[in-house]
Design a protein around this nucleic acid. Structure first.
Length: 581
RNA sequence: CGGGGCGUGGCUCAGCUGGUAGAGCGCUCGCUUCGGGUGCGAGAGAUCGUGAGUUCAAAUCUCACCGCCCCGACCA
């Protein structure tokens, strides 16, 4: 491709609203433009990368007998009513009405549609298993789109769905897809880590997220040298060894005034006591029933863990009026001591059913918590002596200082960008949509499903996030929009033009692509643009080297250039081609 | 949804104690230059987000709306 004809509007400065490195570089390199909040246009350079990633994904999925389909983005309400998600999905689901007042949604995902398709035409165990996938435009009306294409409202997702005659087969295929994902992200040149993910109400270790390790990632990952890795939304922790307190060191409880101070932060500062001494008190409604949860002051409660422990389908923070009815005091001053007797039932509030304390609280002696009185906290609280929860359990978000659930070594933490997820769905959708098959005994059974997503657009952003420098992007060869930047210095010079054309032809002949900068521009302009768009390899043709029968070759990721004899170019290109997996 | 901020050529921004618009980059033309965004000259391009109000006069002041961004709440 000749750069003079290529629609690649590069920018010296990034737009003001570009809020992270990858989106800045994508804007500057002329890969994307923004149309509206969370909605982006992909220009030719960007699209090429998208297509490279899609190509790799397609190849690896076809290799495990996946079959590509294309599903509608406008989907009828009726289907979503069948699974109940029309209500459950909430505002993230973009709803539309046609001229006949029929209701539709714009696909945020495609379980309903694919399951509907399969239930219609797949009826026998002989047709199973089957793996179908698509690259589809998705729309999720995010509350706050940000980080450009990383968390946009409209995006391209590869979604794959598998259907099986048995749970064992689904499990086996889960492993096959997991392997395919490893190959995909490796080929894309990404440093990634598969981590255990929270699998929602279904439970079990049937979901993994593929994380690209990057400091700017939105997800936090807990890692251990033993191999354990999990999203902190899910990560379990081992209970710390129990400590026993010297009875003579236990203080009596005492109420202290803390006027207007209701956050752990403020009270800790005021009383000059470490946050770890605090017992943080939270109220939830588990399927409507009030529950009190206690965690250490420096910990965050993990709602997934609490929900699973309680066996609840739905868990939400208790609204303020319920909080205040239970604690009998303004929000911020509740504590575990005598909480059940303090409870003052209102007309529409149910009684407090359970008090769950995090394991870490077993080792908190002389703790501090709210006194269930306005503007007052209690010090000297000790578990057992002063309060007795219904259960101690692991309910906090894994944090620095926690121990690995497998080997009890201290956990480490990193940030990551979620680029893919594998999920064993079970029969959740096949049951609600009656996607059944006849087994060999003519017995009708629901199919067992798996679903597997890859954020294509996000993967592109993650690759940039992971590999760039002050000058621009550094593409891994396998997903680069072109393999080569071919730069002609003084492109008007006849010898330079001819030699450049010859190099260009050689690159094409080797089955690769070059973006040929034959513009009438100064060398500096060309080099700046080349560095910005970050193609992996650069060949410079100029009269300076041409007189020795040479051109210049440089890798984007390396500092120094080398000389190539023109005659040896085909051989060199062959070597480079082998580097692309 | 709560708090804060911002909307001025394609991009980055100035002008905002009222007198209907500027710069740099980019673009066009000419000359110049040719290994890290060359220099000079000449141009094109803006109903200052929208609507209403105040005023002789509004980019500038007031109100409403729209859009965008940040922080928070929320979240398969």
């Amino acid at each position: 491709m000749k750069l003079s004809k290529f629609f690649m509007p590069t920018l010296r400065e990034a737009p003001q609203d570009a809020d992270n490195i990858s989106v800045k570089l994508m804007f500057r390199a002329g890969m994307i433009r923004k149309l509206a909040s969370g909605i982006y246009e992909w220009l030719p350079l960007g699209l090429r990368v998208l297509q490279k990633v899609e190509g790799i994904v397609r190849q690896e999925l076809n290799r495990v007998d996946g079959q590509e389909v294309r599903l509608p983005v406008i989907q009828p309400k009726e289907l979503w009513m069948e699974t109940g998600r029309w209500q459950v999905y909430g505002k993230e689901l973009l709803r539309l009405t046609d001229r006949k007042d029929s209701e539709f949604c714009f696909a945020p995902t495609a379980e309903e549609v694919i399951t509907n398709m399969v239930r219609r035409d797949v009826n026998s165990y002989r047709q199973l298993p089957i793996l179908l996938y698509q690259f589809g435009l998705k729309f999720r009306d995010e509350i706050r789109p940000r980080f450009g294409v990383m968390r946009s409202r409209e995006f391209i997702m590869k979604d794959a769905y598998s259907f099986h005659a048995s749970d064992g087969d689904a499990q086996k295929w889960y492993g096959i897809l997991y392997g395919a994902y490893e190959k995909i992200f490796t080929r894309c040149g990404l440093a990634y880590k598969p981590v255990e993910a929270d699998s929602g109400p279904i439970g079990g270790n049937h979901s993994h997220e593929f994380m690209v390790i990057a400091d700017t990632g939105e997800a936090e990952i807990a890692l251990c040298a033993c191999g354990y890795a999990a999203n902190t939304e899910k990560a379990e922790v081992s209970e710390a060894p129990a400590r026993t307190a010297d009875p003579s060191k236990l203080h009596p409880m005492r109420d202290v005034p803390t006027p207007g101070l209701y956050t752990v932060e403020d009270v800790a500062k005021f009383l000059k006591i470490n946050k770890k001494q605090f017992i943080k008190t939270l109220f939830f409604l588990a399927d409507g029933a009030p529950v009190m949860a206690l965690v250490r002051g420096d910990h965050e409660l993990n709602e997934n863990k609490l929900r699973r422990l309680l066996g609840a389908a739905d868990l939400e923070k208790a609204p303020q009026h319920i909080y205040e009815a239970i604690a009998g005091c303004p929000a911020g001053f509740a504590g575990p001591v005598e909480i059940k007797t303090k409870y003052a039932p209102g007309k529409d509030t149910k009684p407090l059913t359970k008090v769950i304390a995090d394991n870490a609280l077993k080792n908190v002696f002389n703790g501090v918590s709210g006194a269930n009185k306005g503007d007052t906290h209690t010090t000297g609280i000790n578990a057992g002596r002063d309060y007795a929860p219904d259960a101690f359990a692991d309910i906090h978000v894994a944090a620095e200082g926690d121990l690995c659930p497998k080997c009890k070594a201290p956990l480490g933490f990193k940030r990551g960008i979620e680029v893919g997820q594998t999920f064993k769905l079970g029969t959740k959708y096949s049951k609600s949509l009656k996607c059944n098959f006849s087994d060999e005994h003519q017995k009708e059974m629901p199919m067992v499903m798996g679903c597997y997503g890859i954020g294509i657009t996000r993967t592109v952003a993650a690759a940039i996030e992971q590999a760039h420098d002050d000058w621009g992007i550094i593409w891994p060869p396998a997903i680069a929009p072109f393999e080569f930047s071919l730069v002609s210095i003084e492109s008007g010079d006849k010898a330079v033009a001819e030699a450049s054309a010859a190099v260009y032809a050689a690159i094409e002949a080797a089955g690769m692509e070059a973006l040929w900068d034959e513009r009438d521009e100064r060398p500096g302009v060309k080099f700046k643009d080349a560095d910005l768009i970050g193609l992996p390899w650069r060949i410079v043709v100029s009269s300076k080297t041409l007189k020795d029968g040479e051109c210049e070759f440089k890798r984007r990721a390396e500092k120094d250039a080398m000389r190539w004899k023109l005659a040896e170019i085909p051989a060199k290109l062959k070597e480079l081609k082998a580097e692309i997996k």
